[in-house]
Nucleic acid binder design. Structure first.
Lengths: 239, 239
DNA sequence: ACCTGAACACCGTTCAAGT
DNA sequence: ACCTGAACACCGTTCAAGT
């Protein structure tokens, strides 16, 4: 069964098997592989296979597996730079600016549910680079956007902190809910697991309610609430 | 250098090397190991070494490495059941109840920064069990607590969703900020990395501000704001 | 009943060697 | 200049064998 999936991925890459290796080509293939098979299935040897090359060849372009994964994060992140909604500066107020940033990051997350945990949980190389905003360009854009809207340094940093926390929690949950967790075999619809529901009558009764996917509404409500909070703080401190 | 650390861990376990293996003993040792060395360093063979046993012996008590990690999550989670602040029912209103739950989970997170990502990011076996509340007991307690305070089913579930998102984002960030990321060698104080700060003048200027650790205040403010939001929704819907 | 030795298949990574 | 073969150290896991 995993073989079938692997072949599918290989098939997609075979036409380009003759063009020479490059760091970019490797990273793209790695992201494709992760999208299809998950991070833990990504192996230097298998990735070599997908690219029609021995694993050892990859080390010419990539120092090692850890760095490869960092590179995948960069690849993901730079997809966002092409997103007009995100790369823009605030033209319709900072509320709109935050809305567009948030939805831009969310789009990347749900486009790559299996890769997003990499962006989210990889340890940042600098304390001021908080996941999931793992790009200095984003952070620069984010902070300078807020400053241009009249936020003080302290306010902008506070918003940055609250915003990253909001994104990380909500998107990680949404992504794992959307079958980021599905392993090699995807069970159609798992039966309500009876095991462990002993002594949990409320959870059992609310099961259907709890299983509903309200992630977009949650996301928007939570974002709205964050923006409200910021509005209050900004106005009460006289900005 | 890793050898020294390993010996330290072994030293702590040597006195009990003669008492027989058990699932519980294995899980405790695994958690200790992760606290000291991190998840990725935990190996069946090394864990066996710590317990004075060959790796193969562990398979009598644990089906495999993946299940071992799940067991570590359970171990962590059940530490919270001993926490009086958390296991109590709401006696001083639901706001106080949420406050105590939140701080209880936070205590576990910062007591085990390297293990917490396991609780946070491991895929839940059921869609209604959202990280980091990866225990049916907690969820049961959480939901029934809210119901007993007059919340409707829908409201309780909505609060559950918002609360888990809040906890996950904030605690994950806090934990990775607190050297959950420190590898085998802990650099005393990393120099401000100049690389990549080209074209990021705002980030560079705000560096000191961004590096400050405000995690407790952030956590409390964010929680306060969440509670405010819930209060508004509850009162506006006439509860 | 509990633990171990030996083995298997598979990793990441290095490096001398091929073309 | 770019890729490969062979090798090393280390994994998770199985299973027949020891005690």
């Amino acid at each position: 069964m995993p073989d079938a999936d692997l072949l599918a991925v290989q098939g997609r890459e075979v036409p380009s098997a003759r063009i020479p290796l490059s760091r970019e080509r490797i990273l793209t293939a790695a992201l494709d592989f992760i999208d299809a098979e998950g991070v833990s299935a990504l192996t230097m040897r298998k990735l070599g296979g997908v690219l029609g090359v021995e694993a050892m060849s990859l080390y010419r372009y990539v120092p090692g597996r850890e760095d490869l994964l960092d590179g995948v994060v960069d690849t993901l992140v730079s997809q966002l730079d092409l997103d007009e909604d995100v790369l823009s500066t605030p033209e319709h107020g900072w509320q709109d600016f935050l809305q567009r940033m948030a939805h831009g990051v969310r789009r990347v997350a749900i486009a790559h549910p299996k890769a997003f945990p990499l962006v989210a949980s990889t340890p940042p190389e600098a304390p001021w680079l908080r996941p999931p905003l793992r790009s200095i360009r984003w952070v620069e854009k984010f902070l300078s956007g807020l400053l241009s809207e009249g936020f003080s340094d302290e306010q902008a940093v506070a918003v940055y902190r609250a915003f990253t926390g909001f994104l990380l929690g909500n998107l990680l949950l949404e992504v794992s809910h959307r079958g980021g967790a599905v392993g090699p075999l995807d069970l159609v619809e798992e039966e309500v697991p009876q095991r462990g529901l002993r002594d949990a009558p409320v959870v059992e009764r609310l099961g259907p309610l709890l299983s509903q996917d309200e992630s977009l509404r949650e996301f928007e409500e939570s974002l709205e609430s964050l923006i409200d909070r910021i509005t209050q703080q900004v106005s009460s401190s006289g900005a």
